[in-house]
């Protein structure tokens, strides 16, 4: 069973992005030939912390200024000299602005470049819709050779970054700005193509990743009070997807809600829907952004406004249970 956070650990909120610079520093100290390539956001992405952590790290951080396309291909070039190259920026620019570079160089040539931008999703908050990237998983998941990881909290973000470094070839790790409660204890480990069953139940499956894992766990509490036992799965590896864990759960429950801080088009919801369509047609409800942009507001307000909070997941669970055969 997965190492879950203790109540004391849960009380400490940390942002997944804070794991970025710290984990790169760890990897460098362990002798992994990491380099970080950023685009004028070294404070926000925390790569500046990597640079400051040890002598010799500073020359391994390349600040490209506000030039994300160049950032991505400089990382490609660095990887071709044997470096494990991590790129930063915000998710909207680090995937969208640099998409052709990720597609035609990083993925086509299958290079050891890790695309790990921060500030994904509506948890960006007040900066608003231009900066709330909600299509990145869709963009990255469609690319051959790319692997996609969406960690839920600080401990799993650290694990995801370590997994990315240990996996040859392109990996996308989705990181967020907001401080979020711990789901896992320190030292949590992730595996490529893995998923974690965080709570067992036989009445409905809640598949989630990123910040929606915490919402799904809260939804399970709401449902339990009504006598509905929900199984909660953290599907942090969107590609490859842990089909076995998800299908096993669906075999028990016969219905699922998939929740993600992302468009319902092309992300985890789509991945689970594709799996079910081919392997086990199952009633599903998708919780996520419904073909619209985000807007300014505080993260908690936006979760409720866009119907991506625990209450919305619980509503979807009640609705999907009614569709079971």
């Amino acid at each position: 069973m997965t190492m879950l956070a203790t109540p004391e650990e849960k009380a400490v909120k940390r942002a997944t992005r804070a794991a970025y610079g710290a984990t790169l520093a760890e990897l460098a100290a362990e002798g992994v030939p990491v380099v970080a390539v950023d685009a004028d956001l070294t404070g926000s992405t925390t790569t500046a912390k990597f640079a400051a952590a040890a002598p010799g790290n500073a020359e391994r951080l390349f600040n490209c200024g506000i030039a994300e396309q160049n950032m991505m291909d400089v990382a490609a070039g660095l990887s071709l000299t044997g470096k494990v190259a991590f790129t930063g920026s915000f998710a909207v620019f680090g995937t969208g602005r640099a998409y052709d570079q990720i597609r035609n160089t990083v993925c086509y040539a299958d290079l050891d470049v890790k695309v790990c931008p921060t500030h994904a999703g509506i948890s960006v908050g007040p900066d608003g819709g231009t900066h709330q990237m909600l299509e990145d998983v869709s963009l990255m998941r469609g690319l051959p050779n790319m692997r996609v990881l969406v960690p839920a909290d600080y401990a799993s973000a650290r694990a995801a970054l370590r997994l990315a470094a240990a996996t040859p070839g392109p990996v996308y790790v989705r990181l967020g700005r907001a401080s979020v409660p711990a789901v896992y204890g320190e030292g949590a480990a992730l595996s490529l193509g893995g998923a974690n069953v965080l709570r067992e139940g036989g009445d409905v499956t809640l598949v989630a990743n990123g910040v929606e894992v915490t919402e799904a766990l809260k939804a399970a509490d709401i449902l339990a009070a009504e006598g509905i036992e929900a199984e909660v799965i953290d599907a942090y590896s969107v590609k490859p997807l842990d089909g076995e864990t998800i299908l096993t759960s669906l075999g028990k429950t016969g219905c699922a809600v998939v929740a993600e801080e992302h468009s319902i088009h092309g992300g985890l919801g789509s991945a689970v829907a594709e799996l079910c369509a081919e392997q086990r047609p199952t009633p599903l409800r998708l919780v996520g952004m419904r073909d619209r942009f985000g807007k300014s507001g505080e993260f908690a307000e936006l979760l409720a406004y866009f119907e991506m909070d625990a209450a919305a997941i619980a509503d979807a669970a009640r609705a999907v249970r009614a569709k079971r055969g």
Partner: peptide
């Protein structure tokens, strides 16, 4: 990944100089 002697796949214009700069930076680190 197919052709010996080709250092990096190219085809989308505008990217090669950035890749070459990254290579030069990596070689200098070494």
């Amino acid at each position: 990944n197919l052709c010996p002697g080709v250092e990096v796949s190219t085809g989308s214009l505008g990217q090669g100089l950035s890749i070459a700069a990254g290579m030069a930076a990596g070689l200098r680190l070494d």
